[in-house]
Design a protein around this nucleic acid. Structure first.
Length: 288
DNA sequence: CGTGGCCCCTGATTGC
DNA sequence: TGCAATCAGGGGCCAC
């Protein structure tokens, strides 16, 4: 699954292989992949053709490429199964190829958006006026991610304390902190010895600081591992950073021993997905 | 307006 | 062996 580190790997790939190139043609093979572009797939192609793309940016799991003078940007989200691939034009179409972007140069590659489950997509938006990052307006509500140097730890703690919710819900709330998904949430909570249902209102400042440290550590470790496992021709991996999977301590380890205390890791259904935790290291909050 | 539940989608896996 | 149910999960949307 593309998590923040994989998305960052993709961003670097786009910066290297796509930045500065001019779009010659856009082919939309599945309209759902362009659904956020309200004017429709044809307009998406028309607006993009002839435009020069700038250096890729990222916030959380969102990626964008400035278009032309930077007043607009192509926004990309990989969803669950999305890939952005730089391919030679004669490479056979991927089974789930959704969008193809050809360039007006002789570099001999094209950009492909491939997405089995079509939870992801591409779209074109105006950028927030005066924003130094050229943030697309539709993601202005997305909080900075914990690897962003401008992420405000103190403000995050205050916001957490003000919410009447539980800690894992808060970690997945993109308006509080972005880039943390189900896997990283479970890993960071395990490292912090926090149960996923702990109310945010009870978190102390040092506890929040600890949690942020662990989120950053696990993401940086995954980024380092993900960075090693791909081919330079591809802009990203296929979503399975196989190498980091072996470093997981909680996620996907039901019935396996906790690496700290040996107690069997448990899995609980949670919000139509799963939460993995150590019942000994991560004690549930006292029932209200 | 904050909170929480539902649903979008396809393929691999599991169970009867 | 075949088919249905389940699961994966980000995030927009909407009801309360």
């Amino acid at each position: 699954m593309p998590e923040l580190p994989e998305v960052e790997v993709v961003r670097r790939g786009l910066e290297r292989w796509v930045g500065g190139r001019t779009v010659a043609a856009v082919e939309v093979l599945h309209p759902r992949a362009i659904r956020r572009h309200l004017a429709g797939p044809a307009d998406f192609g028309t607006q993009l053709t002839g435009q020069r793309l700038g250096a890729a940016r990222r916030r959380g799991k969102y990626l964008w490429l400035p278009v032309g003078d930077g007043s607009r940007a192509v926004l990309a989200h990989l969803g669950m199964s999305g890939q952005l691939l730089v391919q030679p034009p004669d490479a056979p179409d991927e089974k789930h190829l959704r969008v193809r972007i050809r360039f007006a140069d002789t570099e001999g590659t094209e950009l492909r958006f491939v997405d089995q489950r079509t939870f992801g997509g591409l779209s074109l938006h105006d950028t927030v006026l005066g924003d130094p990052d050229g943030l697309p307006d539709v993601i202005a509500h997305i909080a900075r991610d914990p690897l962003d140097p401008a992420f405000d730890d103190a403000a995050f703690h205050t916001a957490l304390r003000g919410r009447r919710t539980t800690v894992k819900r808060a970690l997945l709330d993109q308006s509080l902190i972005s880039g943390v998904g189900n896997i990283y949430a479970d890993e960071a909570l395990w490292r912090t010895r926090l149960h996923y249902e702990r109310p945010t209102a009870g978190l102390t400042r040092p506890r929040t600081a600890e949690l942020l440290t662990h989120i950053r550590e696990v993401m940086n470790e995954a980024l380092a591992a993900g960075g090693t496992s791909f081919d330079s021709l591809y802009v990203n991996v296929n979503g399975q950073s196989g190498y980091f999977d072996r470093s997981l301590d909680a996620y996907g380890r039901e019935d396996e021993p906790c690496r700290r205390c040996g107690t069997a890791i448990r899995r609980r259904p949670w919000m139509n997905r799963s939460s993995y935790f150590c019942p000994r290291c991560q004690r549930p909050p006292r029932a209200a």
